[in-house]
Structures are given as structure tokens and as C-alpha cells.
Nucleic acid binder design. Structure first.
Length: 361
RNA sequence: UGGGGUGUCGCCAAGCGGUAAGGCACUGGACUUUGACUCCAGCAUUCGAAGGUUCGAAUCCUUCCACCCCAG
């Protein structure tokens, strides 16, 4: 019962969110241990090892808070379970979400196991998400700060994980987190929010993946006419709905921008369309690798909302679950539904779970 | 070789004697724990070239150059 008996491992990234998470738990009287994960050994484009920089902040913050800290290295696991998957999806011409996989395989699997081995009662992270109760079931709830909600990345968590997890800042708006950090004078209080692939950081995406995958240039065809309108430098550099990077200039007919409409990985052809055309929109999609927070789908058929890309607004849909897969009918057509991205289901504040888009129609 | 047409930013494209619109592309930034989407900003001292007329020209004149079309 005594909080002092409860040991909690906090995953520290070097940013404000995890720092404040640790700070809050410490304030509440828990036995807090900060652990920094080192999962990517390479330096960034400028030759800077971002992990070193991050760890410096972790050390400073932990000293300020007065908690012990450790570092653990899951580079091998990250490479094998996340990065290999990431590359394979790109080879297939899909658009993977490595951070979804990172949460599933690293943070809430390898890292969680590590924390429990340290005799921790819980693993805490700085995610903007909440854990609720529904009788004997745990619920994954959106963070109260709608703008920062990160449940999209966490839908693979199940009952076992949630029972051992805490999200200390999930019920706070970002502004409040910043304020707490500032008042506690935490070293990372004013650090810019990190973006980019978790653990890898902000990169020139094309340049980055060109280090791992061979690029094969080819033609860009107008999906409407089949005529060549440009050249691409490699299909993996493009995602459905993308505008930037096509390099297709004006012509005499229209003055609208071009968007990626489709990829033909067999023929190495990128199809583009000019303007917000119907071909960019889908009315349904197939989803595989389903994972439900409750352990199973609510029913075989259910209505909910679905988010198809991070920070995209979720929209109404009807889900048919069968043989571990789902067919999702959108109530309104959706733009740029992309294979490899996750479809995450919600009912109000509750994140039900989700899966990976296989095909959009 | 005759006849006609066109040459304005990487690509389209306004302008028609008064001191270079706009769109696309591109670049930078904002947003963002996935590559986007979106938003904001920047982007031709110069109008195929050289002369000339004029207070003043991309806009008028002359010559030249390039490309296109129709004849042959």
C-alpha cells in the first residue's frame, strides 16, 4: 500500500515528457528509477550522436529529481524487430510506421520485461495516453490533450502490458507539462519536442533510407492518361497522397499540384494524379495484424471511428472482423489510405485497438 | 527556299508604352515521436540577342538568332 514500496521504472528519453513523468511519480512518493534506452548507435546527418545528447539530459534531470538512473541497450532487438520490419515494408512499396512497431516490440515488450526483472511494479513512460478501468478490464484512453494524443502509436498494447504500465502525464495538457518542468527547473524544460522516428531522430528521410535500400529510378505516369509526366528516384521514397518531391512542373491544361496516387512495385512505376482527384480517396480498406486492447474485438461487426494516420482526425466507420482480419467501411470517403500505415479504432475516448492497412479500395 | 506564328523565372502563363500577376516545381520554416497532407515565407533589376524611337519599352521600329506550322 505504501507508495515507497512501489518501484517504478520510467523510460527516460531526454525530453520533457518523460522527465515530468519521472518528476511527478517521485513527488507522489514512489521509488522511481530512470532508465535510458539506447537503441540506435549511428550518428545523424551532422555526425552527431543524438543518443549522447539525450543521455546527458537524462542524467541531469535524474540528478535534479534525485533518482538513480541506468542505461540499457536494445539496439539489437530494435534492429531485428523494428528496423528490419521497416525496411522490408519499404521494399514492398508500403509505408510502415516504425514507432508503432517500436512500442509493440521494444518499449512495451523488451523494455517492459527488463523493468519487471528489476523488480519494478510498473513501467512508466511519457506518452500522452491514459489507462482506465472497465470492471476487470484495462482501457487505453486518449490523452486529455487532444493535440498530443499518442494512442495511435500504442494500440498494440494489451491487458498484460496495461496492467504494468503508467502514463503519468496522460491527464495533463502539454502546456501544463511544460509548466511543471519549468517550475521544477528541469534541464529539459525548454527542449524542443522531438520528432522523427523514435530513437533514430530527425533525418533527411530519402538520404537515410538510401543507406539501407538500393534505389531504382523509374517513370512517373499520369494515372488518368498513362502518359509519362516525370521520373521518380525510387518507389520507397514516396507515400500515397504525397505532394512534395514529385518535381512535376506546370502544364497548359491545369495549374494544380500532383499527388502520388499509386505504386506499381512490379513495374517500378509511380502513378500520380493532378489535383484532389477521386482516385486519392477510398471508401473501405482491409486491415490485418489486428490487436485489441481488450484481447478481442467487441463484436464481429461494430461501428466506431478510425484513425488512418497519426494526427489525422478519426472518422466514422463500420468494422467487420473475420479470421483475425477486418474489413473497414468508411462512413465518409478517406484520403490517401495507405498500406502499411495503421488503422486505429476508437469509441469516444477509448482506443479499442487496430491493425495494419493491407489494401484500400 | 517562300508564307505565317512564337520566343517573359526550372515548367505553364499574365502583361499590349509607364516602370515584370499568378499557378506548378523548388528552397526555408511552422506543425508533427512514422515519409506525409496542411499552413507560412522566399523565389526573374529582368522579359531570345544587338541596336533604335521615347521623359520612359517586355510592350513600338530595325537587324540577327532559335523553335513551330503551312507550302515546296
Amino acid at each position: 500500500m505504501d507508495r515507497f514500496d512501489k518501484k517504478i521504472v520510467v523510460g527516460m528519453s531526454g525530453g520533457v515528457d518523460s522527465a515530468v513523468s519521472a518528476y511527478i511519480l517521485k513527488q507522489k512518493g514512489y521509488d522511481v528509477v530512470g532508465v535510458f534506452m539506447r537503441n540506435w548507435e549511428e550518428t545523424d546527418d551532422e555526425g552527431i550522436c543524438t543518443a549522447d545528447e539525450d543521455y546527458k539530459y537524462v542524467r541531469n534531470v535524474c540528478d535534479q529529481i534525485g533518482i538513480p538512473y541506468y542505461t540499457v541497450n536494445f539496439s539489437k532487438e530494435y534492429w531485428n524487430r523494428v528496423f528490419e520490419y521497416f525496411l522490408e515494408e519499404l521494399r514492398l512499396g508500403r509505408t510502415p510506421n516504425p514507432d508503432v512497431m517500436c512500442n509493440k516490440e521494444i518499449k512495451f515488450k523488451a523494455f517492459l520485461e527488463f523493468a519487471l526483472k528489476l523488480d519494478a511494479s510498473y513501467l512508466a513512460t511519457g506518452h500522452y495516453a491514459r489507462i482506465g478501468d472497465d470492471g476487470d478490464k484495462k482501457l487505453l484512453l486518449r490523452g486529455v490533450d487532444d493535440n498530443k494524443d499518442q494512442t495511435y502509436f500504442l494500440y498494440n498494447l494489451g491487458q498484460n502490458e496495461l496492467a504494468k504500465t503508467m502514463f503519468p502525464i496522460g491527464d495533463l495538457p502539454k502546456s501544463e507539462v511544460r509548466k511543471i518542468a519549468a517550475e521544477a527547473k528541469l534541464a529539459s524544460a525548454k527542449r524542443k519536442d522531438s520528432t522523427g522516428i523514435c530513437f533514430i531522430g530527425e533525418r533527411d528521410f530519402n538520404k537515410f533510407i538510401s543507406n539501407y535500400l538500393p534505389a531504382q529510378s523509374g517513370n512517373i505516369l499520369d494515372i488518368k492518361t498513362g502518359k509519362k509526366v516525370g521520373e521518380h528516384s525510387g518507389l520507397m521514397y514516396y507515400t500515397i497522397g504525397q505532394r512534395k518531391g514529385l518535381g512535376i512542373g506546370g502544364n497548359s491544361t491545369k495549374s494544380e499540384p500532383w499527388f502520388v496516387a499509386k505504386k506499381d512495385i512490379e513495374k517500378n512505376i509511380l502513378y500520380a494524379v493532378q489535383g484532389e482527384d477521386d482516385v486519392l480517396y477510398s471508401t473501405s480498406c482491409d486491415v490485418s495484424n489486428l490487436s485489441f486492447v481488450a484481447g478481442q474485438a467487441p463484436t464481429e461487426v461494430f461501428d466506431c471511428t478510425v484513425r488512418l494516420r497519426h494526427r489525422q482526425k478519426d472518422r466514422g466507420c463500420t468494422v467487420h472482423v473475420e479470421d483475425g482480419k477486418a474489413h473497414v467501411d468508411f462512413h465518409d470517403r478517406q484520403r490517401a489510405v495507405t498500406p502499411g500505415q495503421s488503422a486505429v479504432f476508437y469509441i469516444g475516448e477509448v482506443c479499442l485497438g487496430g491493425g495494419v492497412v493491407e489494401k484500400a479500395e
